[in-house]
Nucleic acid binder design. Structure first.
Lengths: 149, 149
DNA sequence: TCTTGACGTCAAGTGGACTTGACGTAGTCG
DNA sequence: CGACTACGTCAAGTCCACTTGACGTCAAGA
């Protein structure tokens, strides 16, 4: 009987690393932080569940937009310890993250639009356009931005 | 004749720090990197032009969404050394940044939407929905994401 | 004038996110 | 069976973005 190979649920470190586009050392690191989990073979080698790839994709996508590993772990921590996450698990995480992501998107769009508007009015110069009031910017990104990320 | 005070163009470090919501040491640091500039008084104290507040707001807004200081400096470096930036200066920077920001927004929205969809289908489980194919995610965020940020 | 606080410089420390190195073992292939 | 590669652990190193510390100076108010 031929061995199932392509559809194997348990993946080796090298496979995971390559498919997720991260270094094996990064897998160790993430595991040490509790972001991902593995089981061990008789010979003490790690084996990752296939859905670890999803988790890694999620981690990297989140990181990419400036979210820290602690925050990501917090979200992932709401998945069940063992077994597959349920709809309910995801719904819980999702509610929190949506707010966070919505907020980040909002800021990013604001940044982009402010930039676009600056083309039109030549701002960053003093008192030349409605966007040039530093306090407006402070209101949007200043003290608030310090507490928030 | 009374001294103009509120509308002073040149600001002291403490004023800039407070209004921009950063530490004075951060101003020093940014200056050492060439992100902001200052002139000195007779007594060797720094004085910042008022539009430094805009630059700082821009820096922090950009940082917030995961853009590094080197990249930010690169953009700011396209502003003129002395004098106020012109429409043309901004247009040049803006074109490049818009692409960058558009891209980041796109990824963020994709992340959010993937998350939202997961509520509907209970994914992160194996083979349960169109979003669960790890290679799809790899295509979007995997190897590409490593080169790109 | 004296004191207090904001500011100056420079070196070193911190925290996050990994990577590298040293060194020993496990599995696989010819 | 032997060699080679992938993997294991653990400590230390790196890079970025700042912060802290030590110590001296400038400036404004009582």
């Amino acid at each position: 009987m031929p061995q199932v190979h392509e559809d194997a649920i348990w993946l080796k470190p090298g496979q995971v690393a390559e498919r997720a586009g991260v270094a094996v050392s990064t897998l160790h690191y993430y595991e040490s932080l509790g972001l991902i989990r593995s089981r061990r073979t008789a010979g003490n080698r790690r084996e990752y569940r296939r859905d670890t790839l999803r988790v890694l994709a999620f981690v990297r996508a989140s990181q990419r937009v400036g979210i820290g590993l602690d925050r990501i772990k917090e979200a992932l921590g709401k998945l069940p310890e063992e077994g597959l996450p349920t709809k309910k698990d995801w719904a819980r995480i999702s509610r929190e993250w949506r707010d966070d992501l919505d907020d980040r998107i909002e800021h990013l769009v604001a940044l982009r639009d402010r930039f676009s508007n600056c083309i039109g009015c030549g701002c960053l110069s003093l008192k030349s356009c409605p966007y040039s009031n530093p306090d407006d910017i402070l209101g949007a990104d200043g003290h608030g931005a310090l507490r928030f990320p």
